[in-house]
């Protein structure tokens, strides 16, 4: 697992030396307020809230990738497994100071899971007890969008979604990431 340990080292180093820190509660409350406001604006239509969060994340990811590359100074990953390590050990480390576990690879190396032991976005959160949010809302869905936007900018089309969330009472928080294809042309993507 040389690429894993190397990615961990890079992530740690960057986190210590290059990252401006902000108060975690500020981030948590800001994000929580956005989600709660969306739930209110869409009148409890959680599918739509999930979609909007994903879209917001997508627009963030397309911008954040440049910061990631400028800071981390890493080159192109040789394969999707290395990409997964970079996402977990460097990306999540420098932006959220967590390193979700990469696991559950499919045999074709095109799909993996990120298992979040901690999730700064979801501190203090308890989903609304309206009987539906527990089944429909993916509170941290913005992260799926961030990954999709960021990887699209480096020519990878992926699909990401949550499959479980401790907020819903599941044992783990798990995101499934699948590589759809490598984008070969360099046409600019449409910004949503």
């Amino acid at each position: 697992m040389s690429s894993t340990t190397k990615a961990s080292r890079i992530g740690e180093e960057l986190w210590k030396t290059r990252v401006d820190k902000v108060n975690a509660e500020l981030v948590t409350l800001t994000y929580g307020t956005i989600v709660a406001q969306l739930c209110q604006d869409y009148d409890g239509n959680y599918q739509e809230v999930n979609k909007q969060l994903e879209k917001m994340g997508y627009n963030i990811g397309m911008r954040l990738i440049e910061d990631f590359l400028a800071k981390s100074n890493v080159g192109r990953c040789a394969n999707f497994r290395e990409t997964a390590d970079m996402i977990s050990k460097v990306g999540f480390r420098i932006f959220l100071n967590i390193a979700p576990t990469v696991t559950n690879w499919t045999s074709d190396n095109n799909q993996f899971s990120l298992v979040f032991d901690e999730n700064p976005l979801a501190d203090f959160v308890e989903l609304p007890d309206d009987g539906r949010a527990q089944d429909e809302l993916w509170f941290s869905n913005i992260l799926c969008g961030v990954l999709r936007g960021a990887l699209e900018m480096v020519q990878m089309q992926i699909e990401a979604h949550f499959v479980s969330d401790v907020l819903r009472g599941d044992d783990t928080t798990e995101m499934r990431v699948s590589l759809v294809r490598y984008i070969e042309d360099e046409m600019p993507p449409e910004e949503e």
């Binding site: 929580g32 739930c39 203090f124």
Partner: peptide, 9 residues
């Protein structure tokens, strides 16, 4: 405090 920090509260 933690409870009132819940964004849905």
């Amino acid at each position: 405090v933690k409870t009132v920090m819940n964004p849905f509260y």
